[in-house]
Amino acid sequence: MKAFTYQRVRTPAEAAQAALRTPGARFIAGGTNLLDLMKLEIETPTHLIDVNGLALDKIEPLADGALRIGALVRNTDLAADARVRRDYGVLSRALLSGASAQLRNKATTSGNLLQRTRCPYFYDTNQPCNKRAPGSGCSAIGGFSRQLAIIGVSDACIATHPSDMAVAMRALDATIETVRANGSVRTIPIADFYRLPGNTPHIETALEPGELITAVTLPKPVGGKHFYRKVRDRSSYAFALVSVAAIIQPDGSGRVALGGVAHRPWRIEAAERNLPGGAKAVTDQLLAGAKPTAENEFKITLIQRTLSAVMAEAKKG
């Protein structure tokens, strides 16, 4: 690990200003992904700003029925919150399907959103990777790609975003609140938060340098039956090959977002109109234009079958 200096901050504004003042600085909260990458020297911050002292660890209801989740709420606490379990079951289920209990006890809401890709070539510093070393090339294209993206890909990168939580939040139309280094605040819909890789796979989100996530807000509950079905090589503690987050209403309408297929949680609202027509009709429109590799084209069939299983379960009593 490269040497770094360390400071604790007490307010979001102080954190953002510290980040602006110090080139090479990174925020650290749970640290479960950042420290992992620092040990491999894939991340090499010269300064860490510990944001754990910010009072951003509350889950609070808003007047309009929405639920505001502080950026530092731990994954365990968010999954176990009674309101989330009752009204946003898809989110609770997604969180509980991710990582291990030890990691969920540390990992925060904002850190989960900002975790880096698990593409094996991003982690292997002996291999070219446009995300780790811009311009060096992509080893995954033509390499081992079974786990990797099938849609929204570019010639520069076929990595997937690894978060389960973010897929559920995409289905729930969550919004992300931030504070910028100049002190101004803004709200980013999760649909606009993650970028596709294009020619700049190293730039993953809409955040500006120094911008700090302060909260995630879930709009008021939409009802329906909530599902998060994750298909993976082990039954626990593994990343998704594919995952389906779905909210299905009694009349058969609903929402569907996919994980494990793209550089961001994948949702096409127009495809949801096909729900009464069955899983194939939805999947065909959701994955129109997919560019899978020979190793991961199975994901298209797997998604259709997983969605079909979810829809069958939704019809049961």
């Binding site: 360390y6 650290i28 640290g31 479960t32 420290l35 992992d36 860490l48 365990t76 291990s100 209990a101 030890q102 990691l103 006890n105 540390k106």
Partner: peptide, 21 residues
């Protein structure tokens, strides 16, 4: 943080002590 051999209980919660400064 993958094997759990370093698990300790910090402030009442189990964590991977290898992934915490």
């Amino acid at each position: 943080g993958q094997c759990g051999a370093c698990t300790v209980i910090a402030d009442g919660r189990r964590i991977n002590s290898c992934l915490s400064l």
